[in-house]
């Protein structure tokens, strides 16, 4: 029997720490958004009950998000895990998407299909944009070069919002797929075994 795991422990650890960070950052972010909405709606709930507590959670949670994210990126580069995400070929994405939507996509343990690759690379990019735009909202004067990159403080708030929405969309699809193929969940906890 093979001793190779589907998900190595650094991946599992950073995945679940990131899940905690997501709950804190999105929950408190909604609380902060509600204090001065960018659009004609507010979120039905937010972490912290009022703006001050929401900000306190957001600025505490950012350390978990960023440090955990850096650990993931470094581990991914050193271990070669990142190679599983690439290349992303549009033709394969289209093919896998069609078979996934008709519920005919085969799930091979330990292999990312093209749709997964696109989603994972996409949410990583959204995460980087969320962190950088968030830093430029927090420190528009000291980190002016970052803020300028996003077109200034005013636009950076919108960029931050849409990065969050992109991550929320990913989480929605991610949870839906886990619900449809529940056998993928235990290996993310135990590591699983490759056949």
């Amino acid at each position: 029997m093979s001793r190779r795991v589907i998900h190595p422990w650094p991946l599992r650890l950073t995945h679940w720490l990131n899940a905690v960070a997501m709950v804190i950052m999105i929950g408190s972010g909604w609380q902060i958004y509600n204090a001065s909405p960018l659009f004609g709606f507010t979120f039905p709930f937010g972490l912290g009950q009022w703006l001050g507590a929401g900000i306190a959670w957001h600025l505490a949670g950012m350390w978990l998000l960023v440090l955990n994210g850096l650990i993931y990126v470094v581990w991914s580069l050193v271990s070669g895990h990142y190679k599983k995400l690439f290349p992303i070929r549009p033709r394969e994405v289209w093919g896998d998407l069609r078979s996934a939507l008709s519920l005919h996509l085969k799930h091979d343990k330990g292999v990312y299909n093209a749709v997964q690759k696109l989603l994972y690379a996409g949410v990583l990019l959204a995460g980087v944009v969320a962190v950088l735009s968030g830093l430029s909202i927090w420190k528009p004067v000291q980190l002016w070069f970052l803020c300028d990159l996003f077109g200034g403080y005013f636009i950076a708030r919108y960029v931050h919002f849409f990065a969050m929405m992109g991550i929320c969309l990913f989480i929605l699809i991610h949870l839906l797929l886990v619900a449809l193929v529940p056998k993928v969940l235990p290996p993310m906890i135990t590591g699983g075994r490759l056949p």
């Binding site: 709950v23 804190i24 929950g27 972490l47 912290g48 009022w50 001050g52």
Partner: peptide
Amino acid sequence: SLLLRAMALGAAAP
């Protein structure tokens, strides 16, 4: 006390 209650409520969820 409102703040502390609010923070505690916020903390209670997670």
